[in-house]
Design a protein around this nucleic acid. Structure first.
Lengths: 247, 247
DNA sequence: CGGACCGTTGAGTAGAGTCAATGTGGGTGG
DNA sequence: CCACCCACATTGACTCTACTCAACGGTCCG
């Protein structure tokens, strides 16, 4: 991946949030990016940090999580290339959770100062970024609905639907029904509020019913419509606006 | 409550998010507010709506919720005077959830256009509002942690701690340990992912242990420190320290 | 070849749900 | 003013989803 592709990833993501003029794209290309590689399972940001930059995912995959004192861990979201998982640090200085890599990952750090200057000069970009934090919040709300109201089967099906749709939205799905899935069953459990054992049993049910093929870092949804029904998945909350979200 | 107090409620809230100059406060006072009263249990906004204005809570209390097809309901947050529960509608046009009154409530509607003009002219206010949506997201994340990882006892204790702290932050607590609590056990259940029956049993445990007095629309936390420990409550996520970030 | 990590399986348990009935206080209409 | 109603709170008995504990299997990799 060469440097100009780095910012293209960001532009492509922002274009899912707002239409950008050539001038605005040019301004984005002027952002100073510091690229850094992480191995799998490394913290990129930790609870309590006061970062002076935001991190844009270029390759790989990251997740946000909060660890409780007694070792319980809640994973709050998975992030794919083009996402800026700590955009909120622009406005709340202290991280109230951590961000870590799921697999070997490269990220680009963008100084808060550069982003603030960009926002001051280009309100469209500022609004697109604001919109991104708002869509983030919409995803949290929907995960809350899952954790509070849905069964283990519905929750698991939902996260599978969500990831395929999001990969497709940024053009990174392998094909119409297949995408990367480097998430272990333990991590899935921490995301869904379930134990590893139970996640395993539910996955086997989905496999047995012919809905998915899951393994070796890859997810294939063999029967989108039935999985969608089982998950009660409705992509409205992703606010992908017009960009069709149906595999 | 007279008209000038309406906007004061908003100013007081925004001052928990950023320091405001006199000029900025003056600009806020120029906002056109349309005040409207709602009875208890009325929808103020519904999933699917495309509102052209934001609603500021003046008196009473509201909550956000999402209803699933089969009648299950997840409540996503409770909002008190000074809060703008649908601020995100400025940037995502279609409501992906509903907002309703818990008790008789008055709200002020502020046209999106006025807010956008204000934001264009006063970056500090725009950033304060952005920050508000980000703090909102932080609250969703913490609720997620509760729903995913915590026991019924921890969750219930947590929501009680949160509400008292938030009432105190905007000066609306009755005293140091008492605030309004017009939430039924059914509603608490829908917020915490529990049944009414179980909520009731947990409340009784907390009462039996002398931690709270709860009833008749009022909550008194008799032993803050023990309740806080039981909830593992840490108010960091509310980001009430204000003015953290001034780009 | 051995360890580490992840996935899989089985047996027993418990936290929370379900169903159903009863208690209680505030509001309302006759 | 009283009787009734209704929403909310409370209680008990029973059930079930998901958890716990524990062991075993597969695969990658040094």
């Amino acid at each position: 991946m060469n440097p100009s592709q780095h910012v293209d990833r960001l532009i492509r993501k922002l274009e899912t949030l707002a239409a950008l003029s050539d001038e605005e794209k040019q301004a984005l290309r002027g952002l100073p990016l510091t690229v850094k590689a992480f191995k799998a399972d490394q913290d990129i940001l930790r609870e309590g940090d006061n970062p002076a930059e935001c991190c844009l995912v270029l390759e790989g995959m990251v997740f946000r999580y909060l660890m409780l004192d007694d070792g319980r861990r809640q994973i709050m979201g998975f992030y794919i290339p083009g996402d800026i998982p700590d955009l909120q640090s622009l406005h709340i200085t202290t991280m109230d959770h951590s961000v870590a890599s799921l697999v070997p990952t490269t990220v680009a750090f963008i100084p808060h100062q550069s982003l603030n200057e960009l926002n001051a000069r280009h309100p469209t970009i500022a609004n697109a970024l604001w919109r991104d934090t708002i869509v983030d919040a919409a995803m949290f709300r929907l995960w809350m609905v899952g954790l509070g109201q849905k069964s283990a089967h519905e929750r698991l099906a939902h996260v599978l639907c969500e990831l395929l749709v999001r990969f497709k939205a940024v053009g990174l799905a392998e094909d119409e029904q297949t995408c990367a899935f480097p998430i272990t069953q333990t991590e899935l459990g921490d995301a869904l509020g379930l134990t590893t054992v139970h996640v395993n049993r539910v996955i086997q049910d989905l496999r047995r019913d012919g809905l998915i093929t899951l393994g070796r870092g890859s997810l294939c949804i063999n029967d989108w419509e039935r999985l969608r029904q089982r998950a009660k998945f409705n992509p409205l909350y992703l606010h992908l606006d017009g960009r069709e979200a149906r595999p």
